[in-house]
Structures are given as C-alpha cells and as structure tokens.
Amino acid sequence: MTKPLKPEDPLGLDNQLCFALYSSSLLMTKLYKPLLGEIGLTYPQYLVMLALWEEDGVTVSRLGQRLYLDSGTLTPLLKRLEKAGLVKRERNEKDERQVLVRLTPEGKAVKRQAASIPKKIMTASGLSLGEIINLRKTLKKLRGALAA
C-alpha cells in the first residue's frame, strides 16, 4: 500500500503544474471532439480555423507563429483543410517565397456552425465567465514567460 503524498512534496504528481495543465488539456480536447465532429473538424484544425476567422489571408509562417506550431505540424493540417475545401494555399504574388492561406466560402461558412461551441465549453467547464477570463489571463502570462 502506498502512502498518500503530502501537498508539499515537490515530486508529487498532483503537485505538478505541468500535470494539471496536461490532464486539463487532454480532458478539454476530449470535450471538444464530439462538438467538432459535428462540423467535420479535429481540434488542431479548429485552432487553425479560429486563427483564420480572425485574420484571413496570412502567411503559413505567421499562422505557425500564432498557433505555436512548426511547419512540419502545420503543413499536413493545412493540406487536410484544403482537401476538405475549407482553405486554399497560394503563393504570395509580392513574394514567391511566401505561401498565403485563405478561407474558402465553405471555410467562412463553418464559422456559423462553430458559433455555439464556446458557450457549450464554458457550460461544461463549470467555471463562471469571470473565472474563465482570469484563468485565460493567467495562462497567457505563463505562456509568455515560457516563450521568452
């Protein structure tokens, strides 16, 4: 029989910030799966679409920066979204080295289908709007510190 870890144990699993973030992320992604399945997107594809709904016609490199994804991860996502008819990739006429990603009319239409998802996630979280705003603010601060 193992004895319970003390809260001050620096190597206790439940005392790890990384585990709290990792396990919460796994459960959040699991929560999104059926909601996104209804509109034909995976969670990573949804993140790409969110970024494009905010700023359409961006370079692949800008999109990668925004999503914290390298091109090896982002390119297959974009290929699948392009095959699904939601985005198109094209060379920048001003700089042939750059590839621009643009939403298709179908990609723009998916935004309407996705509109109810954030509220469903908020309800499932059990957190108030204020708690979500504070948590997001704290996580953005953490992300900024880790990225520096």
Rank of each mutant, 00 (worst) to 15 (best):
S61T: 12
R143D: 13
G37Y: 07
G72Y: 08
A114G: 00
E54P: 01
L35M: 13
E55Q: 11
L35Y: 12
R89E: 09
E90H: 04
G57N: 05
P34F: 09
Y32N: 10
K119G: 04
G107N: 01
Q65S: 14
L139D: 01
K111W: 07
I39W: 11
E90L: 06
G72H: 11
K88P: 04
D95I: 01
P105K: 00
V110I: 15
L63M: 00
T138F: 03
L139S: 02
T29G: 12
V101K: 08
E90A: 10
V60T: 14
L103E: 07
E93N: 06
V87H: 09
E90S: 12
E38M: 06
I132H: 02
Q65F: 07
V101W: 06
L63R: 08
V60M: 14
V87N: 10
Y43W: 12
Q45A: 12
A109Y: 01
A84Y: 04
Y46W: 13
K94D: 10
L100T: 03
G107W: 00
I121T: 02
L47K: 15
L103K: 02
G130D: 12
L86N: 08
V87M: 03
M49C: 05
L69E: 12
T75Y: 06
I117V: 12
T42M: 03
V60Q: 15
E55P: 01
G126H: 08
T104V: 04
V87S: 08
G57L: 03
T104F: 03
I132W: 03
K108W: 02
A145L: 13
T29W: 07
A51I: 04
G130N: 11
G57F: 01
I133S: 14
K137H: 11
N92Y: 10
R112I: 04
S61N: 09
G72F: 07
L127H: 15
S71D: 12
E38F: 01
A84S: 14
L47A: 12
A84G: 07
Y46R: 07
L139I: 05
K79W: 03
M122Q: 15
L50C: 11
N134E: 13
L78Y: 06
A114Y: 00
P76N: 03
R102A: 08
T104D: 10
K88I: 09
W53S: 07
L50S: 13
T29I: 11
S116R: 11
Y46P: 02
